[in-house]
């Protein structure tokens, strides 16, 4: 298992301070789901994200990921809501016993557009930012080192564990413990595969925690950082700008709804 989504590169987007990208993604998602004018709020952040990704040269990769991750959901959404949507009224087409309704299709389209948009704006962050840099940036902005550890350590542990699984799996397979076959066989295959992994990983916890302690993980002194990811005043302003815009949109929509404009 690799850190699958990150695409190495040296574009202006890659060089941005990770928190700037994180704030962009979060603001975009907030607007997608809570902004005024459902359709515009759903489409615009996605379009902007794709344009940004395109200028950084990783739009194709992002689009491929979007298609890959959302196609099953989208297809099922269109079928389920198109044919069985509870709000269906306007009939577009009949297919044997099934009727295709306009309301359901529109609803499914809105959901799909929102999901595409959400995914595009989160991919803007995760395809252009090495997870390690994101975590270091969070640390720099003052996230406690304990939380930083909880985010960072699994990222580095995962590939180790995945490798260990591979070793165990090939050992099991060579001993004839099948990972194919009927349900019972597969359940039986699961335990010898997972049990040694779970227990050895848990037993290692103590040594790992001791090793952290003696390196001052819980030392009362204020921490320092060997290297800093560069941030700029411009980006700081940009971040606050994005937060303000998102909040304005949400407040406006909230006010509109409360006053019964919908």
């Amino acid at each position: 298992m690799t850190l699958g989504l990150y695409t190495a590169g040296d574009s202006w987007l890659h060089r941005l301070f990770p928190i700037t990208k994180l704030i962009f993604s979060l603001s975009a998602i907030a607007i997608i789901f809570g902004g005024p004018n459902k359709w515009l709020s759903a489409i615009l952040p996605g379009v902007i994200s794709i344009l940004i990704l395109w200028s950084a040269g990783i739009a194709w990769r992002a689009l491929k990921l979007i298609v890959q991750l959302l196609t099953p959901i989208a297809v099922i959404l269109f079928i389920v809501h198109g044919f069985f949507g509870p709000a269906n009224h306007q009939i577009l087409m009949r297919l044997g016993p099934f009727v295709l309704g306009q309301e359901g299709l529109m609803y499914a389209s809105l959901i799909v557009v929102r999901l595409v948009s959400t995914l595009a704006s989160s991919l803007l962050l995760v395809t252009s930012t090495h997870p390690g840099s994101l975590i270091q940036a969070l640390e720099q902005t003052g996230l406690s080192r304990k939380l930083v550890y909880l985010l960072g350590s699994p990222l580095l542990l995962l590939p180790q564990m995945a490798r260990r699984i591979q070793t165990i799996r090939s050992a099991q397979q060579s001993r004839g413990l099948e990972t194919q076959g009927n349900l019972l066989q597969r359940i039986k295959a699961l335990f010898p595969l997972v049990a040694p992994l779970v227990f050895s990983a848990l037993v290692d916890v103590e040594e790992r925690s001791l090793a952290l302690e003696v390196r001052g993980f819980s030392a009362p002194t204020p921490k320092t950082n060997l290297t800093e990811i560069p941030d700029t005043t411009k980006q700081q302003v940009l971040r606050w700008g994005m937060i303000v815009i998102a909040v304005c949109f949400l407040v406006f929509e909230f006010w509109r709804k409360r006053n019964g404009y919908d």
Binding site: K146, L157, V198, S209
Partner: peptide, 30 residues
């Protein structure tokens, strides 16, 4: 609750969630 031991345990548990989740989906269990 959040001693260094617990933190190291949580980190391992996160990995177990992901890894076991993947194995199980690979074995197509219900």
């Amino acid at each position: 609750d959040f001693s260094t031991f617990t933190l190291a345990l949580i980190a391992v548990a996160i990995v177990l969630n992901i890894v076991i989740g993947q194995i199980v989906s690979l074995l197509k269990l219900p």
